[in-house]
């Protein structure tokens, strides 16, 4: 068993085992099997409409990365355990790795690439830089998307609340204090 397999085997039992590893399709180990079906799909990603024909097995995450070349959204565990793949679907934060694209025909998706206004960073992006809220940066796009959800849900009024409501995002570098401070700052700016 490889290190990755060992991690994946235990990830279901203990979420922390599934930390961001170098992105690699978990499916790649198995022999590729051709699809039995191809379905039409329309999604709006960061304001742009895309019409695609997809294998029903395609996840929203792989659709973004492989089909739309939006690689800002990261693949950590591919099991719903790390949060690196967090995007907003119809305004709500979700794990793109566990969502099949065909479940979201007609959806509006926002990824990290759609957060800034042109060259102007979103206040949460600015806050991440100001608070040094990352080290390697692998979890960062998921943290920011999750942070946007956390703030809009109204779960960012104290450091304790932010920690609890950001716990679906694992940071292997342990940048948590900076992440919590950045979300707190952006939430405060949002309220004023």
């Amino acid at each position: 068993m490889s290190r990755r397999e060992a991690l994946q085997a235990t990830a279901g039992a203990v979420a922390f085992a599934a930390l961001p590893l170098p992105a690699q399709a978990a499916d790649s180990a198995a022999t590729p099997v051709p699809p039995t079906q191809t379905l039409p799909l329309e999604v709006t990603v960061n304001g742009r409409v895309h019409q695609l024909a997809v294998d029903p097995r395609l996840s929203v995450l792989d659709m973004l990365r492989e089909r739309l070349s939006l690689t800002g959204t990261k693949k950590g565990c591919n099991q719903g355990a790390c949060g690196a793949c967090t995007v907003l679907i119809d305004g709500q934060r979700v794990n793109a790795c566990l969502a099949l694209a065909v479940m979201h025909d007609g959806a509006k998706i926002t990824t990290i690439e759609g957060v800034a206004e042109g060259e102007t960073l979103h206040p949460l992006q600015v806050a991440f830089i100001e608070h040094d809220a990352f080290q390697c940066g692998y979890c960062t796009s998921g943290q920011i998307m999750s942070g946007l959800g956390c703030i809009s849900e109204g779960h960012a009024s104290s450091a304790e609340e932010i920690s609890y409501w950001m716990s679906g995002n694992i940071c292997r570098c342990g940048a948590y204090p900076g992440i919590v401070a950045a979300v707190a700052q952006a939430a405060k700016e949002d309220r004023t």
């Binding site: 085997a9 235990t10 279901g12 039992a13 719903g80 949060g83 967090t86 709500q92 934060r93 979700v94 794990n95 566990l98 969502a99 999750s146 959800g149 956390c150 849900e153 779960h155 409501w165 950001m166 716990s167 679906g168 995002n169």
Partner: peptide, 21 residues
């Protein structure tokens, strides 16, 4: 997690499968 709870349904929750590794 918050992300999972936004998606996970009540029916599916009851029928989720074991976490034995």
């Amino acid at each position: 997690s918050p992300q999972l709870r936004n998606v996970a349904s009540i029916g599916g929750n009851l029928l989720q499968r074991v976490r034995c590794p």
